[in-house]
Write a protein that binds this DNA or RNA. Structure first.
Lengths: 237, 237, 237, 237
DNA sequence: GATGAATGAGCTTTCATTCAT
DNA sequence: AATGAATGAAAGCTCATTCAT
């Protein structure tokens, strides 16, 4: 009997890989909750019930753990974006999805987004550049989507790089300013307002038509938004 | 003896007040440069040439120094905004000024803005709320400006709170993502693109006219922008 | 009233200097007893009844404490040698004194000598060179004494550098091999044998006469030798 | 079955013995290079490409490895000395050989000699006594040689124990003070000077004749000295 | 025999905070 | 009002040693 025949594809993660991931996961949770500096290596090791020395078998030092934690967050972002930009959707629908998913992620991972803004500076320059590179890739994907919209005449020309950052930051704003926004808006409302501020005003007539048609699809994506934080007072506009 | 007769208005700052401010200023500089945790109380006291024990005569503890440092930054923001919203300007011109000044401050005080995002969480909840309150006031001022635009029919109705945050975050984006933006855009270009994304698309026909007329005034504000960072490759749109 | 008029000469050591010396002294004792690595900073601070943090106000790090400890030992050596080589004695008598004092120091500071052999390698290269430089100075002084003996025809020509090291090492041998020697010899006997091995065979006839005449003086120096370790079995020659 | 028939004499070393020796050899190399404390058990196991757990099958603990490492060094010394004292040579020639071989070993194994001085104190008292016992045996052999010289009237009476230590320490001096000596002397020169300081002055007339006759033999031994360190400035006497 | 994941005591070092002067 | 010596909790990191596999 050939065990693990297809192990190349469906790899059984090695013990080491599982540990690394286990530690990174715990680190993301604790760093996000308490911040990088106040969280001790021992906190992390206790979280997963191992000795503190073990962390150092899998990571260089505490900074290295932070790097991995931040990469893990960004990678989750990247993975979701890739799904958002499926060719099957037209570029306008993709744009709506990007916005919706961006906000959904910001909702689900508000702590992690905040962590990135708090702690990237605690890394060494080289590590920081790594993080910045991943963010740049994400922005580049959004930008391509925007440029597709413009190229196909669905959107009026706008500066694609700055607009891409507007899309990214809109989600981050939800995470960073949740304390001021979530008592008035649900994520769904926030996404909806975002479309009115970041997409609709820039569409051409044909773009507009696509947008209306894409309504359903985008709403599906929006449905992903976990309604964990129910707005206390709903007072839209 | 007529000492301090007019102290209510034109107060001669007491020695204590001067010390407090002196410490806060040094703290802003050092925290902004190195971050809150890595900066020691001794660093701050050395910066102003006093013994480190003296800090504790004027501040409860290190956190208290951070609180004052963050307040100092936000107060500077608030003061500038107050100037921006002078009644002499119409609401559209005021809006342009808000954007321009916001970016100018983000340029001049990028480190301080970054500090706020890094370190607010290091405060005690009560202190944090104080900071959040000041930010809310700033947003409220922007919002009033937007609502004035909408009420006077110069701007199409948009969600004023979210839009106000968009204005605030646009400046913060310049500070936070300078590493990605400043090699392609100057602050002036960034402000100009901001107007195309945050103001122009939302103006009514009459608002549009005001905007064009206000060109000069707004540009004056934009002139404040210190062109410290010259763009390496200029490639607008 | 002029207090501290002569403070330039008879300096009252500052608090800082006293602390530094106090720490160094404790470090010499503990490092000598237990060795550098097994002695903790806390051991040292406890020895003098202060908190362990205080050590770091006066020394860079643990290595720096070791450097000072070793320097303190060597400086004591140098100081004693300077006395040994007084011009009032002739060169032969000086040589006898060098040998006697060398052995006396080795007896009194056997632990410290051993420490130097154990722990010099634990220093950084630059620090190590400092230690080596001091030792070289000591050897140079012995060498000059030897060369004076040879130049004045009191001693037959021998290689002065290697012979100087023989003199130095003779004392070190007493410290390093005490476990094998002290049960058979007292320091006085050891010194006496040393003269028979390192001085007498190399003297010329005139040197010989000086040596015999200098007997008393040298013996005075030898008297300094603290007879702490009484030989268990005396079996000279 | 004739397995291990001659195992008493020509033993086929068991796997365990080979492992033990393999580990000890690696330990000597690493301890000598970096010192006992800074070398980790893992360093040693990596050096020979085995898991670190394996060390503990063959040694009690790290100290035990050090003990074996030091014994290995001393045993090598003892073995060489045994060859030096072959009865075929006369006692004077043997003495010359002792000196030459001593220095040759100090040259080839300077690091190991230094290790012994650095790390013997890191052993437990019982282990330390073992090391001291081996050294005493070596000294005893030298001493016998000296006593033979004296008994046969080739050498004037000197304290044989102290003189024996002088012979031993002369080699150790080369290892310990190489940094000060090797730029001025080659080992051969050092040995030659040693003869002038430790042998020649103590020979009787008949001893002198033996010494001159033994020139060749001694020189053969001296030839063993690996001229690895060429003196930069040669300035004998 | 052999491995290496896991442990945790123990160390160096930092720094906010106190307080005698 | 001001100082800076002193404290000690607390954290990161190492590594000898164990033991399930």
């Amino acid at each position: 009997m050939a065990v693990n025949k297809v192990s190349a594809d469906q790899r059984v993660p090695s013990v080491a890989e599982k540990r690394t991931e286990q530690i990174a996961t715990a680190a993301v949770a604790l760093f996000s909750e308490r911040g990088y500096v106040p969280t001790t290596i021992e906190d992390i090791s206790n979280e997963i019930g191992v000795g503190k020395g073990l962390i150092y078998r899998y990571f260089e030092d505490k900074r290295d753990v932070l790097l991995c934690a931040l990469c893990a967050v960004l990678d989750k972002y990247k993975k979701e974006y890739a799904l958002a930009l499926l060719d099957t959707l037209g570029p306008v629908a993709a744009l709506r999805r990007v916005l919706a998913i961006n906000c959904a992620l910001a909702q689900e991972h508000a702590k992690e987004v905040t962590l990135a803004y708090r702690s990237t500076k605690d890394l060494m320059p080289e590590q920081r550049h790594k993080i910045m590179a991943i963010e740049s890739e994400i922005v580049a994907e959004i930008r391509e989507c925007l440029e597709a919209c413009i190229a196909t005449g669905l959107m009026r020309p706008v500066n694609p790089k700055i607009m891409a950052y507007q899309f990214l930051m809109f989600g981050h704003t939800w995470a960073l300013k949740q304390w001021a926004l979530s008592d008035e808006f649900s994520v769904a409302q926030f996404v909806s307002e975002g479309e009115q501020l970041l997409i609709v005003p820039f569409l051409t007539a044909s773009g507009r038509r696509k947008f209306d048609a894409a309504g359903k699809i985008a709403n599906d994506a929006a449905a992903r938004v976990a309604p964990k934080t129910s707005p206390r007072r709903s007072r839209s506009r």
